[in-house]
Design a protein around this nucleic acid. Sequence first.
DNA 1: TAGTGGTCTAGACCACACA
DNA 2: GTGTGGTCTAGACCACTAT
Lengths: 233, 233
Amino acid sequence: MALTIYEQVVEDIQQKINKGILKPGDMIPSENELSKKYNTSRMTIHKGLTQLAGKGYIYSVQGKGNFVCAPDSKYFLHFSEKELIDEYLDRMKLLEVNIIKPADEIRKHLKASKNDKVIIIRRIFSSEKGPFAYDTKYLPYKKAKPIVEQIIDYATFPEIVANMETLFSVKNEIILSTKAADMEEVEHLKVKKGYPLMVIEQKYLNYKDEPIGWGLLLIKNEFCKLHAVSSFK
Amino acid sequence: MALTIYEQVVEDIQQKINKGILKPGDMIPSENELSKKYNTSRMTIHKGLTQLAGKGYIYSVQGKGNFVCAPDSKYFLHFSEKELIDEYLDRMKLLEVNIIKPADEIRKHLKASKNDKVIIIRRIFSSEKGPFAYDTKYLPYKKAKPIVEQIIDYATFPEIVANMETLFSVKNEIILSTKAADMEEVEHLKVKKGYPLMVIEQKYLNYKDEPIGWGLLLIKNEFCKLHAVSSFK
DNA sequence: TAGTGGTCTAGACCACACA
DNA sequence: GTGTGGTCTAGACCACTAT
């Protein structure tokens, strides 16, 4: 359990912040002071402070010093469509794969122009006890790309879009909300009208921030619990 | 727009990963090779690679090298109870502040023992158009601590618990789900039975990972949209 | 044994802030 | 001007991996 010097610096200052000895806005002793205190080089101290900044404990201002951060409200959310669905999945039913002229709302999400067509994919996921999720996805249609029908059977959204761009090119945004089941969802999910559903809207962007996919995943409430943890540690 | 050397290293390698030239599992050229290529010291290269590792692009194995990561499913979720509520808040009604013997479920969440008492706080938040959120929080009761009633009027959970421990001592976990309104919520939120609600369960821990608060925030669906962004960039 | 990354040094120069 | 952090160097030693 031997800590390196810079780890010791991180640990000590973190403790002082956690215990309230150093409060938000307080200045950390300068790198020169700390390098004397720890009897080490300034670079080593700097490394520790950089790490503390990365963790969100402190921030640096050139020419002034290092200061304790105010607490923020960032969380790490672990979310994987595949994991979420696989937990309960017994079978998947492909309702539709089509090339369509998109509605205005969809066109806006995909930043498609007037005459562009899009691929629509609609799927129902069922557990042993019946359907629990209803998924609709839209992808820009490009003639040059290979037929997607083959790959769709088991693919979740990341995997679908991964076949359109390279794997790491995507940035993903999700928006969580709830809604009451309407007639369409009543039919597909076999629930009563008004049944509460978790709505997971997903936007996929390539590395140029251009939209390469958009979708809605509706999940029956008892099948969806999402966990998030504050980034402070 | 002059990048430092290590920023240039980060940029170049990131690009290669984004474009698929470097694929998950591939080894990055060694630090020595890169320091020759960029005509710089190994420390500068090392700094760049460390930063790439922090971003989740690569990982290091001592004695072997640096390798491209497989994509994961981590997101940054921005969530602040205060912000969420303040957006619509017209007035807040304090339904109850009491010291009670907790039900078993609550005792479990707070890791309280048989005879410990807890403070229960129940509040209704209303917009101009009526109630939109119903909040219940539980805090361990400690005789020595000052009366909390005074501070509760405007306090959100972080601020309440902040008064029990120091500000930075808390780690927060939230669990998102949905539920249909039951009779209690029908009464307080003036909705029909079965109305879809976003459920935000919050666990507060101090720096020793001991629970210092637990609560449920129920929000009418049209008042709650949560955004999250994938950690890749 | 040779190559890798992890840490550390004792300097250096720079940009910035403040008095 | 002095003090601050940001970057960078040209070495060094260590722990680990591979052969």
